[in-house]
Structures are given as C-alpha cells and as structure tokens.
Design a protein around this nucleic acid. Structure first.
Lengths: 201, 201
DNA sequence: GCAATCTTGGAATGGTTGTTCCAAGATTGC
DNA sequence: GCAATCTTGGAACAACCATTCCAAGATTGC
C-alpha cells in the first residue's frame, strides 16, 4: 500500500560520495547536496538520516566501490612487484588525470578532517581501509618473494606498511597538484629498493 | 601618539596555530578563536584580517616554527642514515605522544582540506613545505652516500621523494590513532631497504 | 594633563548552517 | 476507484557563521 521512493538511493549516494570526496565534509552544506542530487531535503533525511550519517554512508560507499575492488585486484595478482607497480601506476593516473583528478583519496582526506571528538565510527572505517591496503600489499609482496624478486632478508610486514604509507603520501600530495612524474619517481625508487642489489648495478 | 596593542600578536598566532592544527580550518569558528585567545573580534580582524588571512598566517607560522627547524636540523646532520632515522623517530614521537599527540601535521592536514577553489596561496605554502622536506632529505641521503651507507645504484632523488611521502603517510595515519610500533616498523623497513644487501643477511 | 590616535569590547548584521514539520502528491493492494 | 501509507516539495526554524561598526578606553608625544 505504501508509496515507493522516487529515486535510486545508490545513485544518489554516488553523487554524495563525489561531493564529499572533492570538497570535504566540513565545507559541504546540505544545500549543496540537495542541489547536486536533485532530491529534496525531506527525502535526504528520510533516506540517510542527518549529515553525519550521510557522510559516514558516503565514506563506507567510497571504500566499498573505489578502494576495495583495487585492493582485491592487488591481493589476487600473482605477478609480484609488477602487480604493485601496476597498483601505484593506476593510483597516480587516477589521482592526477580523469574525472577525479586532484581529488585525492576520500579516506586519506578523512584522516585530516577527523574531529578530535568521538569520531569512532569514522575511525573504524579508516582503520579497516588501512588494514585492507596493508593486507593486499602483503599478499603481493609474498607473491614477489615466491618469484625471487625481493632482496634477501627483507622484512615483509614492514615493507607492506611502508608501501601503504607511501600510497597515503601519493594521495595527499596529488591533491596539492604534485606532478605525476615526481610521484612516479618516488614510487619507482621505493620499488627498486626492494629488489636485490644486482638488479641496480 | 597612538595606542599600542594590548597583546602579543606572536603569542596569539601560536594559539591560533594550535587551534587550526588540531581542529582544522573549516570546522573552527572565529568564536572559538576569540574564546581561546582571549582577545576580541575587533583586535583579531584588525591584526590578522579575515579568517582566510588568519588561517594562512597560522599555516605559515606553523611551517616557520615547527617544520623549518626540523628540516634544517635534518639537512645539517652529517651522520647519514642515523640522521634520517632520528628525524622519523622524533616525528613519530611528536605525532603519537605529548602535547600535540594525534593532531597530525598541520601542513598534511591542509592538503586534505584544500578547496578546489582558488587556494593558490595555501598551495604555495604546501609546495614550499614539500620542497623543504625533500631538500633536507636529499642532503641527509647525500651524507649517507658519502659515508658508504647506501646500496649501490640507489636513485638519490627518488629515495628522497619516497621518504618525504612516507612522512606524509606517518602524519596522516597518526591522526587516526596508528600505533607508534606500526609506524616505526614502516620507517625501519624503508630505511633498511636503502642499505646494501650485506647488512640485512 | 592634554589632545590626538589607535585599540578594544560588545552589540548588531545579514547570510548560512543543519534540521524539522506539514500539507500536497504519488503509489500501492484490493 | 478507493483508501491507506509512504514520499515529496518547500516553508519555517533556531543556532551559528564571518564580518562590520561604533562608542568607550588606553596609550602615546608634548
């Protein structure tokens, strides 16, 4: 008997993600969300709750739709270092060109926007994201190890953490306009230092 | 003949830095600044101009008082890798403990809060900061090279960029509550991969 | 001590914020 | 087609935003 929604919540959330991703949560008003999505305030609040809930849903949607697929692909890639190089290559391309150029990564941005307050739900998403990235990186490094691409004695867990933090650095600097060349140089140096000495002579 | 200021602008700017550093610019109101500093709105506007000018002054003050001294010390340190290890050790300590624990780095935070708009002045500060960090890192790496601490064939410029981006990663993750141990593991792995193979067997 | 000149406190402003509310509209099962 | 039930548009709201303004106060050179 009831009426049904006159819009697609998933599509709307996608637009909200793009808005919060680009502009940040604090400096994006509900009015902008309404203008961008075309749906009314009532529908927004009825579907997603208040602004905090909306942001949280958008952040989770971002991880689910943008981060997770990339992490999964990296973790499943058996090529070793080329897989990691491919990950960073795609990252730099996505951060510097195309539709989302200079937007950075919504999760990285969220780190800086964390209110000292009880942002526990947001923090949980951030930690889960970081864990997913580290895990994928670890898997790719293990594959590299199996193929003999890594220098002897390399601390696999530590290297995974290094590369994960490096990705955050790329995300951050890309937002300020860092050149793809500079970012690529940093990544290539990091990857080169994982290989045995012989390959760099 | 004129009257003179009834407060110390430098001390006030320090308080403003701490406020924007911790809470971010977008979510900090002028009212909070007035409450924190104790000076009145009139004095604030007369001394620093509007909010954008105030934030810019605070950002520049942060770089001048917090980043620059650390960069200079790193650049002048002739010990090589131990100097870099010391830099990161101090960074992790400052980010995870003490007065500014979990505040991250104001410049790193600024990256994420960049409005797509004409934030050209802010971007300039960010670029200068990044340049200072890379330059200091390069100098320290050169010292390491002179002392034979680096693996053969290492791309010095690339390694400097890698370490700089790594620092941004540390800043970001520390704000979300990353453990000093995890951050240290990432840094140590990065530094270890700069040395010749022999030292890790 | 005087007058000139800047600073200061605090009220006032107009705009924007997130959120709520309700009448009007749309869609359902029967 | 009917009523029940949800959704929708848009007005209304109080709180807060950055900024301005002015009378009152403080400090200076003389």
């Amino acid at each position: 008997m009831p009426d049904v929604k006159h819009f697609d919540p998933d599509a709307v959330l996608d637009q909200v993600v793009r808005l919060f991703w680009r502009r940040g949560a604090a400096s994006t008003g509900i009015a902008e969300v309404v203008a961008e999505t075309g749906i009314s305030r009532s529908s927004l609040y009825a579907t997603f709750g208040g602004k905090r809930d909306l942001y949280l849903a958008a952040l989770r949607g971002y991880v689910e739709r943008h981060s997770r697929p990339v992490f999964d692909r990296l973790a499943a890639d058996e090529r070793g270092l080329p897989a990691i190089a491919g990950f960073f290559g795609g990252l730099i391309a996505a951060r510097c060109t195309g539709e989302h150029a200079r937007w950075g990564c919504m999760v990285s941005n969220a780190h800086a926007s964390l209110d000292g307050a009880e942002d526990d739900d947001v923090k949980q998403v951030l930690d889960a994201h970081h864990d997913g990235l580290c895990t994928a990186m670890r898997a790719a490094l293990r594959a590299a190890g199996r193929r003999g691409q890594l220098r002897p004695g390399l601390a696999l867990e530590g290297a995974a953490q290094t590369l994960a933090l490096l990705a955050y650095g790329v995300n951050l600097r890309s937002r300020a306009g860092a050149s793809p060349a500079a970012l690529t140089a940093a990544v290539e140096a990091a990857l080169a230092s994982l290989t045995p000495d012989e390959e760099n002579r």
